[in-house]
Design a protein around this nucleic acid. Structure first.
Length: 870
RNA sequence: GCGGGCGUGGCGGAAUGGUAGACGCAUGGGACUUAAACUCCCUGGGGCUGAAGCCCGUGCGGGUUCGAGUCCCGCCGCCCGCACCA
C-alpha cells in the first residue's frame, strides 16, 4: 500500500485521541512544560505558526518518549486592536470576529497532529480569564504594585481617539490623516521599576536563554551611574530657581555649552505659555508623537529660551537654556547639558546653532589647543575604558580613563556639595491603560466621595458590555448609556466605572501560569503551579525579546509577592528559544523600469518620484515558473520576482498551510519546516523544498514496506543506526532540528544500501521510526507498525545508543603542512602520540615537503589533525 | 538615531580555533519504460590539467595564531526591537 498521508494522519490522530495520549497529568514522573508563544487569532494560521508549533511539538514528543510527564498546552491571545479595526471596517462585533477566528484556526491547527492537551485551551477574552486577571489586578493594587499618574498619548483630534504608535504615520493619524497631538491623561501604571535592579541581576541566572536576549534586556533596563546636580538659573520665572540635570558623563562638565529641556519639562511649559515663538516650537515638536524611535529619527532642532544658568564650577560662566525636541521627559530629569566635543548628537546640535565646542579631553598627550582642533569637525567619543588626557579636567588625574574621570567628578561634586552620584535605570514603569473597548476592563470605580476605589472581589468579573457599536469615533465604553454607572463598593453611593481597559501585554504576562490550572476559580492553584512551573522550554519569535518577556518576568514576581506562584517561579521561563520567520519570494506586476515600493530595491529613484505606481502582487499559486522567469498563469504576463521577505498578506507572498496539508499531508509540512534552515534563522518556503520533503517521506514508507527475504544481518547498518540515535538525540537536545533531519537522511540512505532483511532490518526501521516520531509522528507510526513495533510508537521509549557500536578502532587524521591540507594518515585510535609523530614524519608527502630538513614544529591534535611546520 | 543579531557553492545549509561545503534542492549524465511520469545509480564551488596534482575561494579591509568561516579591530549590506502592533 503506497504512502497515503490523508488516510493515515487521520487514523493516528484518532488513535492518540482515543488513548488520551497528550492529556497532561500530575504523577510520579518528572514533569516537563513546553510552551510556544500563543497565537493572536488573526483569522487563519500561517506557516510561521506551523514552524513554531512543530518545533514545540518535537520537544514535547521527545521529552514524552524520554519518560517525562509533559504539559504542552494551547490558547489564544485574543484581545487587541485588530478586532476593533475589523468591526469598524466590516461591521460586526469584536467578540464574534475573535471567536469566529479562533474556531477557524483551531480547525486548521488540529490536522497538524500536535501533541497538545486541548482540554486546557482558553482565550484571554474568555469571561473566566478576565475574572482571574482582574483578581490579580486587585491583589497587585493591594500590594502597592499599581498606581496612577499622568502620561502623554497620541491623540487623533478627528477620530477622537488615542492612537497606537504604529497608527501614527509621519506625525499623522493613519485613518484621519490629521496631525496627531500629544495629550496628557491620567493612566494606570505597574511598578515594574521597583524590580529594575532585580530584573537586571537575575538575567545572570537565565542560563537557558540566548545571550543576545539577555543582552538586549540588560541594555533595555539600562542601569547607569551618573551625577545629578542643579544649575542655578539667572533670569527664569518664579519657582524655577534651579534646573535639575542628570548626566552619565560629569567628567565633561567643563565642555558644557548649553542646557536643553524637553518640550514637556515644567519650565518649558511655563515659558511656552507666555511666548508665541516657544509655543509654536513646542507644538511642532509634539507632532512627532510619543514614540522614542520617531523622536530619535527626527531632525534634532531646538530654540533658545533666553534663560541663562550659571555653571556650577564657575559662577561667572553662563550657559544658554534651549528647548530641544530630542530630550525625553521620561528619562532622567527631562533636562540635559550638552557637551558637544564628546557626543555626536550634541555636536550636531552645536554646529547647527553655532554653540561653542570645547574639548574636555583629547587623545593621550594632546594639548588643549590640539584637543579643541581635534573635535572641531567630529566629536571624540572613545570607549570609557580608554585612557585619555584631560585638557579641561577638574578632578582626578590628567591622564585617566573615562570611568575613573566619571568617578572623580562625582566625588568632586559630592565634596563640593553641588551634586551627588545617582544610579538610574532607563526602564520606565509600565503604562497599562488603553482607551479602547476590546480589552480586559480595569476593575475600579470612581466615587465622588471615596475617590478611586477597587471593585470588590465578589463583584468580579467586570465584563464588557455587549451592546456597543463602532460606527462613531471614540471609545464605545465612554458613550455607553448604562455601563459606566456603578455602585461604590466602599460607601454604596453612585460611582463611575473606569473605562480604560488593560494593555494586551497584561494578558500574555501570566497565561503560562494559568495553563497549569486553566479552569480553577482562582488565578492559579498552588499544587498545580508547584508541580508544573516553571516552563522548561519556551519558544517564540525574537520580536518578543524585550517587552513580552520582561513584562512576564515582572508579572511572575508580582504573582509570587501576592501568593499566586511559588517563590521558585519568579523566573517563569527556564529556557528560551527564539525561532526565525518563514519567508517567501514576492511576485509583482509592474511596468518595466519602474521601482518597487517598500522593498528598498528601487532601481530608479527619479522614476519613483515622477511616476507613482501601485504594484499588484500575486499569490504563489497564481504564478508559474518557467526557464526564463516567472509568469502569471491566467494571462501569461511576465512578473518580477522580489527576494524573500516575511510572509505578509499585503505582499501576497503567503502559502496557506491548509493547502499544503491537504495536498501533501501534515508530516510533509512539518518535515520541511524542520529541514535545511537552522531553527533560529529565517526559512524560505519553496515549492521545490516541499515536494522534496514529500518525496523523502514516501521513500521512507517504501523502505518500511520492502521487507526482503530471510533474516540477513548487517553490522554496518546497525552501527549506522546507533550512530543516528546518538546524533539525532544530541541534535534535538541542541535545538538543531535541521541537523537531526540530515542525520535521518543518512540513516535512510544506509537502509537503502544495506542488504539486511527480516528482523535485523526491521529492528533498524523501528529505531528510525522512533527517531522520526517527534518530527513526523504519523508516518513514524506507520513505519513502526510495518516494522513490527508493539502498541503505539507514541508510547514507546526513546531508543538508547549502544556505546560499543559508536567507537571505531581506526582514525584518519588529515595532515597539514604549513596550515594547508596535503594528505592524510590512518592510524589506530589508541596509538600513542610519539608513534603518531613517527608515522607522520615517515609519510611520503611530508618527506617531499620537508625536503630532508627536520620540521620546525609538529603539532598533533589527538583524533583531529596533524600540522607540520616546515 | 540608539540597542541586538546575521552574512559560507546556482539555492537552503554543515563545520568543540583543526580536512570548508555534511545533508538536501537545482543542474548534467546514465539505468528502467514503446514513451513519459515515478523510481534507482553517478556527477555536483571556481580556475589550470588527460590525470595526479596545483592555485583561488566563507560580504569587504586589516590583525592574532602552527592553523581563522569560527577570535579581535574597522567598514558594507540585510533583519529584529525602540515602551499603545501582537
Amino acid at each position: 500500500m503506497p504512502y497515503d498521508p490523508a488516510h493515515s494522519e487521520k487514523r493516528w490522530q484518532e488513535a492518540w485521541e482515543k488513548a488520551g495520549s497528550f492529556r497532561a497529568v500530575r504523577d510520579e514522573r518528572p514533569k516537563y512544560y513546553v510552551l510556544e508563544m500563543f497565537p493572536y487569532p488573526s483569522g487563519r494560521i500561517h506557516m510561521g505558526h506551523v514552524r513554531n508549533y512543530t518545533m514545540g511539538d518535537v520537544v514535547a514528543r521527545y521529552k514524552r518518549a524520554q519518560g517525562f510527564s509533559v504539559l504542552h498546552p494551547m490558547g489564544w491571545d485574543a484581545f487587541g486592536m485588530p478586532a476593533e479595526n475589523a468591526a469598524m471596517e466590516q461591521g460586526g462585533h469584536p467578540r464574534d470576529w475573535t471567536y469566529g477566528n479562533i474556531a477557524t484556526m483551531r480547525d486548521q491547527l488540529k490536522p497538524l497532529g500536535l501533541s497538545i492537551d486541548w482540554s486546557r485551551e482558553f482565550a484571554t477574552c474568555d469571561d473566566d480569564y478576565v475574572a482571574q486577571q482582574q483578581a490579580l489586578f486587585l491583589d497587585f493594587l493591594d500590594a502597592g504594585l499599581i498606581y496612577r499618574k499622568n502620561a502623554v498619548v497620541n491623540w487623533d483630534p478627528v477620530d477622537m481617539t488615542v492612537l497606537a504608535n504604529e497608527q501614527v504615520i509621519d506625525g499623522k493619524g493613519w485613518r484621519s490623516n490629521a496631525p496627531v497631538e500629544r495629550r496628557e491623561l491620567t493612566q494606570w501604571f505597574f511598578r515594574i521599576s521597583n524590580y529594575s535592579e532585580e530584573l537586571l541581576e537575575a538575567l545572570e541566572t537565565l542560563k537557558g536563554w540566548p545571550e543576545k536576549v539577555r543582552l538586549m534586556q540588560a541594555n533595555w533596563i539600562g542601569r547607569s551611574r551618573g551625577l545629578q546636580f542643579r544649575f542655578d538659573t539667572v533670569n527664569a520665572p518664579d519657582g524655577f530657581d534651579r534646573i535639575e540635570v542628570y548626566t552619565t558623563r560629569p567628567d565633561t562638565l567643563m565642555g558644557a555649552s548649553f542646557v536643553a529641556l524637553s518640550p514637556d519639562h515644567p519650565l518649558a511649559k511655563a515659558l511656552e505659555a507666555g511666548d508665541a515663538r516657544l509655543d509654536a516650537f513646542a507644538a511642532e515638536a509634539r507632532k512627532i508623537g510619543t514614540s522614542e524611535e520617531a523622536l530619535e529619527k527626527a531632525e534634532k532642532v531646538g530654540i533658545d529660551t533666553g534663560i541663562r544658568v550659571r555653571h556650577p564650577l564657575d559662577p561667572n560662566w553662563e550657559l544658554p537654556v534651549w528647548i530641544a525636541n530630542f530630550v525625553l521627559m521620561d528619562y532622567g530629569t527631562g533636562a540635559i547639558f550638552g557637551s558637544p566635543a564628546h557626543d555626536q548628537r550634541d555636536h550636531d546640535f552645536a554646529r547647527r546653532y553655532g554653540l561653542p565646542i570645547r574639548a574636555t579631553f583629547g587623545k593621550p598627550g594632546m594639548t588643549e589647543a590640539e584637543a579643541d582642533a581635534f573635535v572641531a569637525d567630529e566629536p571624540y567619543v572613545p570607549l570609557k575604558s580608554e585612557t585619555v588626557t584631560y585638557v579641561r579636567g577638574f578632578s582626578g588625574k590628567r591622564d585617566q580613563t573615562g570611568e575613573a574621570a566619571v568617578d572623580a567628578a562625582i566625588q568632586h561634586a559630592a565634596t563640593q556639595g553641588y551634586g551627588e552620584g545617582v544610579t538610574k535605570f532607563r526602564l520606565r514603569d509600565w503604562g497599562i491603560s488603553r482607551q479602547r473597548y476590546w480589552g480586559c476592563p480595569i476593575p475600579v470605580v470612581h466615587c465622588e466621595s471615596c475617590g478611586t476605589v477597587p471593585e470588590a472581589k465578589q463583584n468580579l468579573p467586570v465584563l464588557l458590555p455587549r451592546d456597543v457599536s463602532f460606527d462613531v469615533p471614540g471609545n464605545p465604553l465612554d458613550r455607553h448609556p448604562t455601563w459606566r454607572q456603578a455602585t461604590c463598593p466602599k460607601c454604596g453611593g453612585q460611582a463611575r466605572r473606569e473605562t480604560d481597559t488593560m494593555d494586551t501585554f497584561v494578558d500574555s504576562s501570566w497565561y503560562y501560569a494559568r495553563f497549569t490550572a486553566p479552569h480553577a476559580a482562582t488565578p492559579t492553584l498552588r499544587e498545580d503551579a508547584d508541580y508544573w512551573m516553571n516552563v522548561d522550554q519556551y519558544i517564540g519569535g525574537i520580536e518578543h525579546a524585550i517587552l513580552h518577556l520582561l513584562y512576564s518576568r515582572f508579572f511572575a514576581r508580582a504573582m509570587v509577592k501576592t501568593g499566586h506562584l511559588p517563590e521558585t517561579a519568579k523566573e517563569p521561563f527556564d529556557a528560551l528559544f527564539t525561532q526565525g520567520m518563514v519567508t517567501h519570494e514576492i511576485y509583482v506586476d509592474r511596468p518595466k523600469g519602474a521601482p518597487v515600493f517598500g522593498t528598498g530595491l528601487a532601481a530608479d529613484q527619479e522614476l519613483a518620484e515622477s511616476k507613482p505606481y501601485r504594484p499588484t502582487y500575486y499569490l504563489p499559486e497564481e504564478v508559474e515558473r518557467r526557464e526564463n522567469g516567472v509568469f502569471l498563469r491566467a494571462t501569461g504576463e511576465q512578473l518580477d520576482v522580489i527576494p524573500s521577505a516575511k510572509m505578509s498578506k499585503s505582499k501576497k507572498n503567503v502559502v496557506d498551510p491548509v493547502n499544503i496539508v491537504q495536498s501533501f499531508g501534515a508530516d510533509t509540512a512539518r518535515w520541511f519546516m524542520l529541514s535545511d534552515s537552522p531553527p533560529e534563522r529565517d526559512v524560505e518556503w519553496t515549492a521545490a523544498g516541499a515536494e522534496a520533503a514529500a518525496k523523502f517521506l514516501s521513500r521512507v514508507h517504501r523502505l518500511a514496506e520492502d521487507k526482503g527475504a530471510g533474516d540477513r544481518e548487517d553490522a554496518d547498518l546497525m552501527r549506522a543506526a546507533h550512530r543516528a540515535i546518538d546524533e539525532v538525540t544530541r541534535a534535538i537536545e541542541g535545538f538543531a532540528f535541521n541537523k537531526a533531519v540530515a542525520k535521518l537522511y543518512e540513516l535512510a540512505n544506509a537502509v537503502s544500501k544495506s542488504s539486511a532483511s527480516g528482523e535485523p532490518r526491521r529492528a533498524v526501521l523501528r529505531i528510525m521510526a522512533a527517531l522520526m516520531g517527534p518530527m513526523v509522528p504519523h508516518l513514524a507510526e506507520d513505519v513502526w507498525a510495518l516494522a513490527g513495533g508493539e502498541g503505539l510508537l507514541v508510547d514507546a521509549p526513546w531508543p538508547k545508543a549502544d556505546p560499543a557500536l559508536l567507537v571505531s578502532n581506526e582514525v584518519t587524521l588529515p595532515i597539514q603542512i604549513n596550515g594547508k591540507r596535503r594528505g592524510e594518515i590512518t592510524v589506530p585510535a589508541d596509538m600513542a602520540q610519539a608513534e603518531v609523530e613517527q608515522a607522520v614524519l615517515a609519510d611520503e608527502t611530508v618527506q617531499r615537503f620537508l625536503n630532508g630538513q627536520p620540521p620546525r614544529k609538529l603539532i598533533v591534535v589527538p583524533g583531529r589533525i596533524v600540522n607540520v611546520v616546515a
